[in-house]
Write a protein that binds this DNA or RNA. Sequence first.
DNA 1: TATATCGTTGTTTTT
DNA 2: CAACGATATA
Length: 689
Amino acid sequence: MLENLNKEQKLAVTTTEGPLLVIAGAGSGKTKVLTTRIAYILEKKLANPSEILAITFTNKAAKEMKGRVQKLVPFGIHEMQISTFHSFGLKIIKENYAELGFEKNLTILDASDSKTLIKKILSDLNYDTNMYNPNTIKNRISSCKNELIDAKGFERFIASAMDEVVHKVFLSYEKKLKTNNSLDFDDLLILPIKLFENKKILERYQKMFKYILIDEYQDTNEAQYILIKKLSANNPNVCVVGDESQSIYAFRGSNYKNILNFEKDFKNAIQIVLEQNYRSTQNILTIANNVIKNNKQRKEKNLWTDQIDGDEVVLNQVQDEKTEADYIAKKIKELKNEGEDLNEVGILYRTNAQARPLQEAMLENHIAYKVVGSYQFYGRKEIKDLLAYLKLLYNQNDDVSFMRVINEPKRGIGNKTIETLSIQAEEKNCSLYNAISEGKTLAFKETIEGLKQISEDITLTELVDEILDKTGMRSELKKENSAMADIRLENLEEFKSITTSFEENYGIISLGEFLDEISLLVDVVEEGEDVPKVSLMTIHAAKGLEFDYVFLPGVEEGFMPHCNSFACEDDIEEERRLCYVAITRARKQLWLLYTKSRMVFGRTQYSIPSRFIKEMELEGEQIETVDHKVDLNFSKNIDKTLEYKIGEKVKSDKFGEGIIVDVGEKILTVAFKGKIQKFIKGHKSLKKL
DNA sequence: TATATCGTTGTTTTT
DNA sequence: CAACGATATA
């Protein structure tokens, strides 16, 4: 088990007793250490599987860790608690809902649900949403919650008129969540802490875990930090792994100082530094080190490797975002022709908005790609509607879901009715659903009650069918008889394949379990399709991942560092860490790109090369400039005379019949059963029907 | 109450 | 540029 580890890694695995801080530089074998450590503890019979708690930040990381631990131990790992902070929190809340004053069937609001609720509160309180931006208020509230400041406690921080509004909305928001019997993401962290004020309960959880392991410790925020602190108060066996140079979630309240302070917080802590990088070539590491050394606040460490220098890092100035994307596509084609695996190619950008021209270039050049971490399917209206029905069936107090579906499909229930109902709910201090007493809304209530009854005797997939029938969603879409409606219907059918696969994996799964899983899930699990694909994602989403070949478009002032960070040196340092994370994703080769001008907000702006480029201390010959448009010569298959309209039916050789949902200058967006696909206009692989 | 059209306004990053 | 909200009209 210990054979393939270096000296420091071995020490990190075998130092099982007492607090341990592992400073693990990028690519230094952090996950390997964590998983081996778990296996080692079990092998030495220091704990039962159920006495191990391993916490990660993302579902992806949790899944990865589970998989790797499973490979190391001879028995099933289901008893082990390997999960994200949020799902661990949810589990605790669910086990103690009554203690917290909730009812059993809790539902979780996602970010857009929270925003909807805040908007509604603002309008109920007669505030102008133009003056008080719901997003800003949502972020303010979220920050407070993550710093463990509750609505009442916020009072003493009020310093402006805006703060007054935030305070009022905050109070109302918390009250609404409670009456709705629902939680937002932040609650998943802070409610367990609240629960732990009860000594008995806290003790129960403290006794549960003998060994606690935390990944990406530099990303813990105050709430997560306190949660761990409480849980481990009587247990010294806490192992945290992290790298303050990779702390990139300050906007979410994460505090890299937690890692710098670990030795103060946990008495007699041992520190191990992993500095040998097994991932990248010397050339890549050098520029990463050069950039990060400009940050003042950090533990001194220097990544080194015994790898060869490797290919030079390429820095390239291009005309604009289109040329940039074309250049990347051209390089990827070359890699492909050389026989490289497209799964080993990553394009990492600072903002999601940058993805578009890149996707277009991939399409134009027939390069298979996936956008990682985009909600394409779950974000679709019909899917959100269906989910809202499911949530409402599970929890009738969920006003957000109620509002979403009360008039979907159209039932003649408009603003007036809702307003009256809202007033009644306010008076009775109950949810909208429970305030129903008359009229068209009563018929709706009866439908829901009917569905609730039958839901007890049927499977989840059958329930979805019943919902589609009884609520009229299906008949409404059939009646509409448009191509768009057909696609919506097909997407709803596709949703059933998701519930089916859940049922196959988990056996019979209850509505509640399903909703819990899906609420914390970001991506649709990729179905089969073993075609190698280039990954497009934000730098944030790329953390913890690695690729042989990495492209970094938009290394410009305003993007990297992002313009919102200009005013504050701490924010610039975070952007620098982000740059560092991006660079260190690459194993073999890295391309850095910046434009002369870029379209931002629909306007062309001149670009300035990022200050980080200078900090990289690249050498002259590494810099090449592409001034001309990259010639891609793909036009022979294109019929430029074809015209398209939204709603038209088309047929693709690969995906079957679809419907055009968007027409761009060069790109068509087509919705197929269960997926959205983009095409070049006039390409022969897509025929009009 | 439903739908169409126009104008306005804001974009970092995510569990 | 697009998404969303306000306003007008059926």
